[in-house]
Amino acid sequence: MTLTSSSPIEESARQGERIFHVRALTKLYGVGDTVVRALDGVDLDLFQGELIVLLGPSGSGKTTLLNQLGGLDWPTSGELQYRDMDLTSATEAALTRYRREAVGFIFQFYNLIPSLTARENVALITEIADDPMNPVEALEMVNLGARLDHFPAQLSGGEQQRVAIARAIAKRPKVLLCDEPTGALDLRTGIVVLEALEKVNREMGTLSVIITHNATMADMADRVIRFSDGRVQSIEKNDHRAPASSLKW
């Protein structure tokens, strides 16, 4: 396991297509005295096929960055480009289309639709996607082929999170954004979920960004970005990614 300290932007890891181009990105919440600088001048480039782990304490701005990348929110200032698209000036409708076509989300609390089965939760999304996977195929990819017709309430936390992953990847997104995907899970199930993410990244070449405050997960990343106070503290590059199954915490 080799950690290489490097200057933040230029030394981008692999030579895939540049997916995100971020410069001086700033996001403020609130007004007047109560203003909070959630993002305070972030510079980043993220490339196709990378697996990025975003580390940082609570309130450091990780989730805010993820929301900007995912087109859930507009930044206050700065540059934010997805390929050739300027996300800072995109309309609500354009952002909706962007999310629909390019982004897959995975959240800490899975956020499945409780009234739909595993298969239906995935199919709900593939229904509106252009070139989706078969929902069954997506669920098999996360080893849930046997639990297709179970409702969320009938699945364990790890299983629910894997349904969420299947839902996110089924539309073959260019970007997979994961906010504390193992935050609510124990070690064993957490590892299974990470293995699924790893597999997706490897097999589909999707740029995957994983937010966590669990430093152990840094080992499985191509690059590790450390965040605090709304700024990038450091970007580290791993020469070799450790397999998720070898992680321990």
């Binding site: 859930l72 409708a93 909706t96 999310r99 629909r100 982004v103 989300f105 956020n111 639709i113 999304i125």
Partner: peptide, 13 residues
Amino acid sequence: EQIAILKAFGFSN
């Protein structure tokens, strides 16, 4: 939260 998810996955208003 379900509404948020639908929006995050690109369902329009």
